[in-house]
Design a protein around this nucleic acid. Structure first.
Length: 492
RNA sequence: GGCGCCGUCGUCUAGUCUGGUCCAGGACGCUUGGUUUUCAUCCAAGAAAUCACGGGUUCGAAUCCCGUCGGCGCUACCA
């Protein structure tokens, strides 16, 4: 039942453009991509937009944008060109279900003519009533098969759907992650596969597309596991080969329910906007359900992961989305980034808030903050004090082992030293350190650095005062020290 | 309710197929200590899992078998 190893391996991701790009969709795409990469297969992207009401082009664009951002390229499928227009690549297209109506129609007619599917004229109300009464009787609800052997449509009914005749048999399949999974089709009842010849439904369209696009392996979320026997039955009826399946576990909220936007940020692009790196997202998502066998390394590039990735190693149980771990992984990637790359990412963020910033200053800020931030967007807030002194209370100017009088002395002496100093002292930290060295002969180190640092940052926690001074320059440094002097004066 | 899937530290996981090397290893988080003028980084140490529970097989079980419980998913003319 498995595809022969001779056949080319073709995987696909088939999202519905009915909303933002969900983290779960992104992770399933990642696993497909990783698997395709690992065995040198083809990765196809297909838009499942049969739901005409909910599918929107803008969601499709978002989907494509998000996948590009992650760096998960596909060999075939819809895409966006340089001018932002939707295009398509690959020879098994179209890759948008809404453009494949004729293909579905052909197979629908085949099923109908062979008596494997039939028109059903039951109304929604009738169906609902049946379902309710079956549930009341404690039986699992399924379609009664009322229209199954109708020879002509009832005269009083105009609307109909197309149902597939589900055989009463056991359907089992081998799942690469879960082993053999078995369902009893007798419990399913005849399923609706299309609203009419031009409007196929999910379970039918998937089967046709996977066949037409020569898909050999279906890697999808665990929530599709119950759809699999239905699809296998349709494949059999159409004489299609069954692909190999692998149902990957779900990503969960902290209460172990399926990851949802009610309880979490579930949109991939939101993480991008919050300053997470795509490499970090991929690394994190891969570790949600997969782990290398060789050792305990956790910071791994897509390249490294794809080299080792096998679908058999993915976890069976769902994984809770742990933002702490994501933050840590992201900070690791920020540390790894080169100065140039980091500057390239941070500059636009900072400049939208502060306007154009001097390159030299920017580089200093980056050097100071790179080990302090977990996300790119934290950079803007973290560097605010360099641009504007926050307001603060004068009593925090005193070091815990010192007293306000000493703090005041230090501040005055520092102002004295700096006021007359050349601007060049504020160009490099060592020079500045030498400049204030005399203070250290009279005071303890903490008595000197603490008040100056608080004066320059307006905060009890901040980077080194000399670093701040080297960014803001002499004039601003002296100004901030004088402000502090005023505050401590009134505090004494 | 029915059907299906799953169940190792708070979380992600290693180990389960091929029982002993696991009185269960790593990472995140947490706690404590070191470094520092403070925070972050960094370094070190520590707490944290009766391997869901109960039986069985065995000289020996996280690993094999049976049962129980729990969680989740699906149960559409959505995907």
């Amino acid at each position: 039942m498995e595809a022969s190893s001779k056949k080319p391996v073709r995987l696909r991701m088939a999202p519905s453009p009915t909303g933002y790009l969900h983290i779960g969709t992104a992770r399933t795409t990642l696993f497909n991509w990783l698997y395709a990469r690992h065995i040198g297969g083809v990765f196809v992207l297909r838009m499942e937009d049969t739901d005409k009401e909910r599918s929107k082009p803008e969601y499709e664009i978002q989907l494509i944008e998000g996948l590009h951002w992650l760096g998960l390229e596909w060999d075939e499928g819809p895409d966006i060109d340089e001018s932002g227009k939707l295009v398509s690549k690959g020879e098994y297209g179209p890759y948008r279900q809404s453009e494949r109506t004729d293909i579905y129609k052909k197979y629908l007619e085949k099923l109908l003519s062979e008596g494997k599917a039939y028109y059903c004229y039951c109304t929604a109300e009738e169906l609902e009533a049946q379902r309710q009464s079956m549930e009341a009787d404690g039986v699992s609800p399924k379609y009664s098969g009322k229209c199954r052997s109708l020879t002509s449509p009832p005269s009083d009914r105009k609307s109909s759907v197309i149902r597939f005749k589900v055989a009463e048999e056991k359907v089992s399949f081998k799942d690469l992650i879960r082993g053999t999974v078995e369902f009893d089709a007798a419990l399913m009842g005849d399923i609706v596969i299309a609203k009419d010849l031009d409007t196929p439904l999910y379970n039918f369209a998937v089967v046709v597309d996977d066949y037409e696009m020569r898909i050999s392996h279906v890697v999808r979320g665990e929530d599709h596991i119950a759809n699999t026997p239905k699809q296998i039955l349709i494949q059999k009826a159409l004489d299609f080969e069954t692909p190999v399946y692998a149902h990957v576990p779900l990503i969960l909220n902290s209460d172990r329910s399926k990851l949802s936007k009610r309880k979490n940020k579930a949109s991939l692009l939101e993480y991008r906007d919050d300053g997470y790196l795509p490499e970090a997202m991929c690394n994190f998502m891969a570790l949600l359900g997969w782990h290398p066998s060789a050792d305990d390394r956790e910071i791994l590039s897509l390249e490294e992961i794809s080299k080792e990735f096998t679908i058999e190693r993915v976890q069976k149980a769902g994984a809770i989305f742990d933002k702490n771990k994501l933050d840590w992984i992201n900070s690791q990637y920020i540390k790894k980034l080169s100065e140039v790359d980091l500057a390239e990412k941070l500059t636009p963020l900072l400049e939208t808030k502060r306007g154009v910033v001097d390159k030299k200053i920017l580089n200093k800020l980056i050097a100071l903050e790179r080990d302090r931030i977990k996300t790119l967007s934290e950079f803007v807030d973290a560097t605010a004090l360099f641009f504007e002194l926050p307001d603060y209370g004068g009593k925090i100017l005193t070091w815990r082992k010192s007293n306000p009088q000493e703090a005041r002395e230090v501040l005055m002496e520092a102002i004295e030293l700096m006021k007359g100093a050349d601007e060049e002292f504020f160009e490099d930290k060592e020079a500045l350190s030498n400049l204030i060295a005399p203070l250290l002969t009279k005071h303890e180190k903490g008595s000197v650095f603490w008040p100056i640092r608080v004066a320059l940052s307006g905060s009890e926690t901040s980077p080194d005062p000399l670093d701040i001074a080297c960014v803001v320059g002499r004039r601003e440094t002296v100004k901030r020290l004088e402000i502090a002097l005023g505050k401590i004066g009134s505090a004494i």
